[in-house]
C-alpha cells in the first residue's frame, strides 16, 4: 500500500441507525435492506421446483444441508448459554430413535412421531444432561462427546432397539418436494424463533449466563433451571432433525449417533459465525454441499472440514456471516493521509 494513503471504512448512508432500526428514506434504501433477505428466501422457496434440472441427488444434498443447519442452530443456541456441545448427535439420535421406536412398535406415521419425538426427545436429552448443567467449562463438551458414543455402544451390546441392525421399513413421506418444504418451514421457524428469543429479556439471561454465571446467580436466578430450559429449547430442532431423517431413510440405527452429526454442525457454526443463527445456516450451506463434492475422496473430506474448523477458529473467529455483513454495510476506500487528518 502507498505509504501516503490509508484505508478508510465508511458506513453506507442507510446505516444511520440506532441498534437495528433502519431509517428508510427511499425505495433504494428499502431494497438495500430487504433484498438480501428476500433473495435468500425466494431462492430457497423455488429450489424444489428445479427437481428436473438438478435431479434427486442435489435435492437430497439440500435436505441434508438443512438438517445439518437445524443441528447447527441448536449448537449456536447452546453456545449462547455458554454450553459447548461436542456431540450434537446426542439430540439427533434421541429424536431419531424415539421416532423410530414409536413407528416400529406402534406403527405410527410421521404425522404423530415427528411432534412426539421432537418434544419427547428434547425432554429426554434435557434429563440426560441435567446433572452436569451445574458444571462449567469443558465438562459439557466432554459429556456430550461421550453420551452418544455410550448410547450406541449400549444399543450394540444389549441389542435393544434393534441393536446393530437398527429398525427399518418405517413409513416415509409422500415425496421429496414435501420433505424439502417441511424441513424448510421448520428451518425458517427455528431461525425466526431463536432470533426473537435472544432479543427478549428471557433470552438475555442466557447470554448473561455465558458471560458471567456467578453474577446471574447473584441476581437470584436458578441458573441450573435456566440452563435446562435452554437445553430443551436447543434440543427441539435437533431432535426434529433426527426424527425427520428416520422417516426419510425409513430406517434408524447406530449411525444416528455418528460423529458426523456432531462435527458437521459444529464446523458449520464456526465457519458461519457464532451467535447470529444466520451464520449457522450459512455455514451449513457452505459446508455440506462442499463435503458432498468431496465425497469421492472418502475420509479426506473429514480432514478438510477439520482443517476448515481450525482455520476459521483461529483465522476468522467472527465467521463468514459477520464478515459479509460488514462488507455489505461498509465500503472501504483509500484516502491520502493529509485529507484524513483534516477530517
Amino acid at each position: 500500500m502507498n505509504p501516503g494513503y490509508r484505508k478508510e471504512r465508511i458506513d453506507r448512508g442507510i446505516k444511520v441507525r440506532s441498534d437495528d432500526v433502519f431509517v428508510l428514506a427511499s425505495m433504494r434504501d428499502l431494497l438495500y435492506v430487504v433484498l438480501p433477505r428476500a433473495l435468500v428466501i425466494i431462492l430457497l422457496l423455488i429450489f424444489p421446483a428445479f427437481q428436473d434440472i438438478l435431479g434427486s441427488y442435489w435435492q437430497n444434498v439440500m435436505l441434508s444441508t438443512m438438517v445439518i443447519a437445524l443441528l447447527a442452530l441448536s449448537w449456536d443456541l447452546l453456545a449462547g448459554i455458554g454450553l459447548v456441545s461436542l456431540g450434537q448427535s446426542l439430540f439427533f439420535g434421541m429424536g431419531g430413535y424415539l421416532a423410530g421406536y414409536l413407528s416400529f412398535t406402534f406403527g405410527w406415521g410421521p404425522l404423530y412421531t415427528l411432534p412426539v419425538a421432537t418434544v419427547g426427545g428434547a425432554l429426554l436429552s434435557t434429563l440426560t444432561l441435567y446433572p452436569i448443567l451445574r458444571l462449567r467449562g469443558i465438562y459439557f463438551g466432554m459429556i456430550t462427546f461421550a453420551v452418544p458414543l455410550l448410547l450406541s455402544r449400549v444399543i450394540e451390546v444389549t441389542k435393544i432397539l434393534g441393536g446393530t441392525e437398527g429398525m427399518s421399513s418405517l413409513p416415509s413421506f409422500p415425496n421429496t418436494g414435501f420433505e424439502l418444504y417441511l424441513v424448510m418451514a421448520v428451518l425458517f421457524v427455528t431461525v425466526y424463533a431463536y432470533r426473537m428469543l435472544v432479543g427478549t429479556d428471557y433470552g438475555l439471561v442466557f447470554n448473561a449466563i455465558r458471560d458471567n454465571d456467578r453474577a446471574v446467580v447473584a441476581a437470584g436466578y436458578d441458573i441450573q433451571w435456566y440452563k435446562a430450559q435452554g437445553v430443551f429449547i436447543a434440543a427441539l430442532p435437533a431432535c426434529f432433525a433426527g426424527a425427520f431423517m428416520t422417516h426419510h431413510f425409513q430406517f434408524v440405527g447406530m449411525p444416528a449417533f455418528a460423529l458426523d452429526y456432531s462435527i458437521l454442525p459444529l464446523t458449520s457454526v464456526v465457519i458461519g459465525g457464532v451467535g447470529t443463527f444466520f451464520g449457522a445456516v450459512l455455514g451449513s450451506f457452505v459446508l455440506v454441499p462442499l463435503s458432498e463434492l468431496l465425497r469421492e475422496f472418502g475420509s479426506l473430506r473429514v480432514v478438510v472440514y477439520s482443517l476448515m474448523l481450525l482455520v476459521f477458529t483461529i483465522g476468522l473467529p467472527e465467521g463468514i456471516f459477520r464478515f459479509v455483513l460488514r462488507k455489505y454495510h461498509q465500503f472501504e476506500r483509500l484516502v491520502p493521509m493529509e485529507e484524513a487528518s483534516n477530517e
Binding site: 439471561v205 458471560d211 441476581a219 437470584g220
Partner: peptide, 16 residues
Amino acid sequence: PFYNIPVYKNVVIPVY
C-alpha cells in the same frame, strides 16, 4: 460485568 451486553441491559438482568 456481562461483557458482550450493553451496560443498561446488564442491569436489566437483575431487574428481570
